[in-house]
């Protein structure tokens, strides 16, 4: 399941909902992304806030495709992707990815795959507000490298 929303999410509540009445799940991996208060790699200028813009319609389509690809590659009992948009402040949740499977290897790998592909394929853009003004966050080559390792030849 995928959700794109402005509201916050609760990791514990999402996992409880996922496992409620379901005893086939043996392992769950999750990744939560939060707004940090440092800029880039240097980290000397404070981020006051961040506004996430997205492409309504394509965002949902892209996330559904990423979930479908994960389910195709690993034996997963459940998948959840939640991504927020709008204005967020340091410490706020941005994204949640959960993969549940009978065994841990599939859960670990699928979780990593989901966030790696999301970061390079889902149409979101971050506008940072810092003490020096606003600037659009630039895509990182390391994110491309992380996503590329899941490509099949």
């Amino acid at each position: 399941m995928i959700r794109v929303q402005t509201e916050d999410f609760d990791l514990g509540a999402e996992i409880a909902r996922m496992t409620d009445g379901k005893t086939s799940i043996g392992g769950i991996c999750s990744f939560s992304g939060l707004v940090r208060d440092i800029v880039g790699e240097a980290g000397d200028t404070g981020v006051a806030a961040m506004t996430l813009e997205h492409y309504p319609g394509m965002t949902e389509k892209a996330l559904q495709e990423i979930e479908a690809e994960a389910r195709d590659r690993w034996p997963l009992d459940d998948v959840l992707i939640v991504h927020r948009y709008g204005r967020l402040e340091p410490g706020d949740n941005i994204v949640l990815v959960i993969a549940a499977s009978a065994h841990r290897d599939a859960a670990f790998d699928a979780c990593r795959f989901l966030i790696d592909w999301l970061k390079t394929k889902a149409p979101f853009w971050k506008l940072e507000e810092t003490t020096d003004g606003t600037n659009w966050v630039e895509a990182k080559e390391s994110d491309d490298t992380a996503a590329d390792r899941w490509n099949k030849d």
């Binding site: 992304g33 996430l52 997205h54 492409y55 394509m58 991504h83 941005i94 994204v95 966030i115 999301l118 970061k119 390079t120 394929k121 889902a122 149409p123 979101f124 853009w125 971050k126 659009w136 966050v137 630039e138 895509a139 994110d143």
Partner: peptide, 9 residues
């Protein structure tokens, strides 16, 4: 649609 490289997550 035209946009910069995506930066979500």
């Amino acid at each position: 649609a035209f946009f910069p490289p995506v930066t979500g997550g």
